[in-house]
Simulated scan of single mutants.
Amino acid sequence: MTQHTEKNSARNTSEPKQNSVDASGAGDAGARGESAAERTLRRRLDPDQRREAIFEAARAEFATTPYSQVKIGDIAAASGSSPALIYRYFAGKDGLYAEVMRVGYERLAVQQESALAALPPNTSVRDHVRTIVQTYLDFVAENRESWGMVIRQSGAEPASVGEIRDLAREARIAQLRGVLASSENRRHEMAICGFYGFVDAVLGDWVASGCPDDDRAPLIETALGALQGALGDWAA
Rank of each mutant, 00 (worst) to 15 (best):
S114D: 15
P120F: 01
M149I: 04
A117G: 08
R44M: 10
E145I: 05
A58Y: 04
P47E: 13
T135A: 09
L137N: 06
F55G: 11
N122M: 05
L116P: 04
R50H: 15
D48G: 12
S35R: 05
A78G: 06
V70Q: 00
F55N: 08
A91I: 13
A36L: 08
A36H: 09
D138T: 01
D166H: 09
Y67N: 11
A58E: 07
V140Y: 01
Q112F: 07
T40V: 10
S160G: 14
S124A: 08
R144P: 11
T40A: 12
L96F: 15
R39P: 03
A118N: 10
V100S: 11
F55E: 02
V103G: 12
A84H: 05
G33V: 01
A77F: 04
E106R: 15
E106V: 08
A57D: 02
I132K: 03
Y136L: 15
N122S: 10
A60N: 15
R102N: 14
I72P: 04
R152Q: 14
V129L: 03
G148Q: 02
T65W: 01
A57N: 02
A77P: 00
G95H: 02
Y136M: 15
I86C: 11
I54E: 04
A98V: 04
S124L: 09
Y136F: 15
V110W: 14
E163A: 15
V70M: 04
E157K: 07
V125D: 05
S154P: 00
I132M: 03
A53L: 07
Y87H: 15
Y87S: 10
E56T: 05
A57L: 08
P66M: 09
D138W: 01
D48F: 03
P47M: 11
Q134N: 10
A60W: 08
R51L: 11
L116N: 10
A77L: 08
N122C: 09
P120K: 00
T135N: 00
Q69A: 07
I164P: 03
A141V: 07
E61H: 13
Y97K: 02
R152T: 12
M149V: 09
G95T: 10
L108Q: 13
L45V: 10
S124H: 03
A63Q: 06
D46M: 08
Y105S: 09
S154W: 03
I86F: 15
R42W: 00
G148M: 01
E61M: 06
E145M: 09
R88I: 06
A118E: 08
L85T: 14
A84Y: 12
K71H: 02
Y89I: 10
G92Y: 11
G80K: 05
R107S: 15
R44C: 10
R59C: 00
S81C: 13
A115W: 06
E157F: 14
E61D: 15
L116D: 09
T65A: 07
T65R: 00
S160M: 12
A58G: 10
A57G: 04
Q49V: 04
A76R: 05
P83Q: 05
